[in-house]
């Protein structure tokens, strides 16, 4: 118990430090003092500094924080519900759905009206999630669902490739830039939207806490403990897809975090209780995303996450495996 609080405390401080670090670092040198003036005393600050802080630095830090936490929670829920350590928003095709929405907006010139590119990604993600939800209700077997998710992903990617083939150079560049993923795309005005979507997703997951804690033992066992299995399952999957869809919409496809952080959080907290794991993965995910976001903007985010993160996670998993199983 005490160990858990120490872990929470350490992670929280870590996230806080990285958040502030993200605010003070960037291609343009602005001193800590100038930034503090820009935040707390905007009348006396240089407009240039205020602009950098509110329009670049703060949205970037918020994007990393929300994306890291959202993807991790989404990944944890998918892994728990499907009782499969390989599940994640990327694997189930949810991220591909978002790509299709963006491709339709950027490449095929569909307007999506007031929604814009970000709205298009959300709609795509939610649509693919609907398909996955229907498949999930048909297949009790998690492996079949994974295969189905991958197939849906392939199908959607093929559609995107068809759109790419017919696109002009300019829109293609915009699409490729979105497709690299990154925390710099979020604007100040979009923060409330991202935050609202994350909160809605998180609430849907939180009200299903009892389900998440017992579902590992199977549906019959869960029902025997008075848990409404069908309803909870739909709520959790809907919440997970909103979290993953919103992140993909605002930050582009971000791989790796959703599938890896739940394993990392388990190593840190050593529990299967989602009362601890959910805040745990949120902090771990935010920490990792903020850390990856500190690398120079010229290096694609997904490259940073994969090159730095994958060896670390593999090491953690292998070590855990020798001790009696991380999976």
């Amino acid at each position: 118990m005490r160990r858990t609080w120490v872990c929470f405390g350490t992670l929280f401080i870590g996230v806080l430090v990285l958040f502030v670090w993200t605010l003070v670092s960037g291609p343009v040198d602005v001193s800590l003092h100038d930034l503090a003036v820009a935040v707390f005393n905007p009348d006396k600050a240089e407009p240039f500094h205020t602009k950098i802080f509110w329009e670049l630095r703060f949205p970037r830090a918020m994007a990393a924080l929300l994306a890291g936490a959202s993807l991790s929670v989404s990944g944890l829920c998918l892994q728990t519900v499907f009782r499969n350590p390989l599940c994640g928003p990327y694997v189930l095709g949810i991220s591909s759905g978002a790509s299709l929405g963006v491709a339709l907006a950027l490449l095929a010139g569909f307007g999506f009206g007031a929604f814009g590119v970000l709205g298009a990604a959300s709609i795509g993600a939610i649509l693919v999630t609907q398909v996955v939800l229907v498949l999930a209700s048909r297949f009790k077997n998690a492996s079949v669902l994974l295969v189905a998710g991958l197939l849906v992903g392939y199908f959607v990617n093929a559609l995107v490739n068809v759109l790419i083939a017919g696109a002009n150079a300019e829109s293609l560049q915009a699409y490729v830039s979105w497709g690299l993923g990154g925390f710099t795309r979020l604007t100040f005005g979009a923060i409330p939207g991202f935050m609202a979507a994350s909160i809605v997703g998180l609430v849907l997951v939180l009200v299903s806490m009892r389900y998440l804690n017992v579902v590992r033992m199977g549906d019959d066992f869960a029902r025997g403990l008075g848990v409404a299995v069908r309803r909870s399952r739909i709520l959790v999957l809907l919440g997970s897809s909103i979290l993953a869809g919103a992140t993909t919409a605002y930050c582009g496809p971000v791989a790796f975090i959703g599938i890896a952080v739940p394993h990392l959080a388990f190593m840190v907290f050593r529990t299967t209780n989602h009362r601890i794991l959910l805040p745990g993965v949120s902090l771990c995910g935010a920490f990792l995303a903020l850390l990856a976001g500190l690398f120079p903007v010229s290096i694609p985010l997904n490259a940073v996450l994969s090159i730095v993160g994958v060896p670390v996670i593999l090491y953690v998993l292998l070590r855990g495996n020798n001790r009696g199983g991380a999976l």
């Binding site: 939180l206 009200v207 806490m209 009892r210 804690n213 017992v214 590992r216 033992m217 403990l225 008075g226 848990v227 388990f266 529990t271 299967t272 209780n273 989602h274 009362r275 199983g325 999976l327």
Partner: peptide, 21 residues
């Protein structure tokens, strides 16, 4: 998988727990 004995026995109290378990 991964669940300890203490955690597993604790599942028995699920019907008496609130929404946040």
């Amino acid at each position: 998988d991964r669940m300890t004995v203490q955690e597993f026995v604790s599942l028995g109290r699920t019907p008496y727990a609130g929404v946040l378990d």
